[in-house]
Design a protein around this nucleic acid. Sequence first.
DNA 1: ATATCAACCCTTTTT
DNA 2: GGGTTGATAT
Length: 802
Amino acid sequence: MTDIASSSASVSARRPNEFWISELNGRQWEAVKECDKPLLVIAGAGSGKTRVLTYKIAYLLDHGYRPEEILALTFTNKAAREMNERIGKIVGRERSQGLWSGTFHSLFSQILRMEREAIGMKRDFSIYDASDSRSLIKSIVKEMGLDDKTYKPSRIQGRISAAKNHLLLPQDYAADASIMARDNRDNVGETHRIYAQYFQRCQTAAALDFDDLLLYTYLLFDRHEEIRLKYARRFRYLLVDEYQDTNFAQHSIIAQLTRENHRICVVGDDAQSIYSFRGANIDNILQFHVQYPESVTVKLEQNYRSTQNIVKAANSIIFHNKSQIEKTIFSDNAVGDFIALMPAASDREEAAKVVGTIARLKRKEAVDFDEIAILYRTNAQSRSFEDALRERNLPYRIYGGLSFYQRKEVKDIVAYCRLLNNLDDEEAFKRIVNYPARGIGNTTLQKLFSASREHGVSLWATAYEPDKYGVKLHQGTLNKLDNFCRMILDLRELLSEVGAFDLMLEVIHQTGIKNDLNQEDGPEGESKRENVEELLNSVRAFEQDWLEENGERFVPLTEFLQQSALQTDVDQKDDDTPKITLMTIHAAKGLEFEAVFVTGMEDGLFPGVQARLFPREMEEERRLFYVAVTRAKRFCFLSYAQTRFRYGSLERSEESPFVREIDSRFIREENEMTISTDRVTGTGFKPTLFVAPSEEKGAFPHFRGNERKTPASPRSDTPAAASANSRGRKLSRVSAVCSSVSGSNESNGLSAGIVIRHERFGKGTILAVEGKGDNANALVEFENVGRKKLLLKFAKFKVLES
DNA sequence: ATATCAACCCTTTTT
DNA sequence: GGGTTGATAT
């Protein structure tokens, strides 16, 4: 089972690998070229993990693997995108097209859509996000007459999520004595019934939640051996990034796909495992050698990112953890500056100090804003920094928190779209049935609810045919319901005729949303209208991108919905002006910055109160701290506030115990810095950096600050062109490509029988050409992906033989 | 049925 | 501080 790569190497290697070797150190190269045995790469922070992954894929491509035979799984879209770009740079874009790379969730949801029949799902299933799930759980708790104090939706959601991550269906859950005992002990003994009901309701709504994307993929492969084999064979090589953060479900699916051939490479760092709260199981990485006894382990221990002081300080932090894989991370970079500790009297002062220091970093060290990050433990901490940055007119960008797609006005429009796409989507229905207000109130809804539960049909079904399900309503209400349903059905007619963008425009007009928003005045209404604009922009951008890659007449709404459901804040880019990054430490995983501020270093905040009593949680918090510090290339600051506003009132806090865990040789307090400069070497960090922020007034008189913000939307995360930009392409470039391609292809006079190579789908034979002008399209039979209809206006391919 | 206001939780962390 | 829920008036 280990012959393929080597046997085909001589045939297809086109490029000497010496060039690569110069780009890699010995260990990295070792990891790249080991393609026969299962490979575990323990990659310390900043040790070139992504480099190894990308070169390894390039190496595979050079040794007989076709792009579509490689599956590369990441945790974030950003990581996937970055990987794709870097591979494109190494082997050229065309040779990497067709690679299966992306997040677990997005790739699996694509597979589920392709194999929907096997699991009895319809093509246009909805994806419930966390708040949809929570709201569904909430209504179930209510319906079951349980106390929502003891059965707090978020708590139940956590349990259900954990169950799914352990591949436990409702019946398995109820049958598990230890789980039931635990639930009973915790006074939530009815959880299994909620879970069963939740599961059922998701099914009648044709909806999958995030965890279902994994669970159903597992079940698909488990119950349909032929399908599992199909994918196990298709993916001849499997790579997994951030393996320390995989949960049992992910681990199991990987096992399903590698059962026959063990061509797999996982990359991770146990010291950076920070998602155990989400079911991530560190044993997956620790037990890799047991799962694959013939496996090889490569440790990458040289850090190329940070100064020696930062690396050593980070080592001294993680040293306090008991359980870990033995390794010594070292750096050959400059010694660098001390980690700087910045105490502050209040959270406001903390923010002022941080921002003041940023201004100085920019001026004295020429660190640009996009090389600076302010990190914190909880999203709630962002506010004081926002205020301080706005006051100083410094550009920033917040990631996380209330993401764009979670705003009410945006969610409402998306909910309409979801309902059009999938009439059974219950959460979407609930959200918009009476928005804008049309007199369908709670009492009506309750009647529909109980009818739908009673008959096991969707809410839509009962609203559409109330009589059939014995719903008793006044004539007036019946008329209102009927009007609503007719409007939805009318809009639905458009699904097969127009693209996502046009459809959304129709929705906004026909449903009265536009009217409603136009009536709202004041800054809030203004900001809502802006957000709707942004939503439309992002749809348009998505369309541009999608049409180019898939030759179709228009973008089906369902395509947009699917990608937007799995899109996170970090995936969005607004414009190109450098901005200071504000995010949680979790969100910063995998990123790096010249200067990093780790803020809120307070006992009870970081580590949080809940962690203090449990050693295992303390270790996770400590790893989180380790992740935070190792994001920094040159400058790392730790700040804390002695008083802080929490839940609206002032609270006192002490310095985090983590601060004292750093070896004192690598850290200095702000005021100490001004005196002891003797150890300051390397990058030449001037002690003058630390001056009271008040002296910093007007540091950037010419700088044009943040765009104006309305109080209602103080954040600067605009997802305009999120999708198009997210692939690293500009709209202008897209259109340029389109025009040139369409010109050449049309004049080439394509006809049946001609063989082409498509950028993404590979080699294929044209079966038929039809249509004129913009609508000209070709039906092509591709070798690997089957039949596709390409819209010649957008399709990127070249003719091989005619 | 809707609009408004007071009382009430609260905060980890995210695909 | 902020968002959600519940009671109350219209």
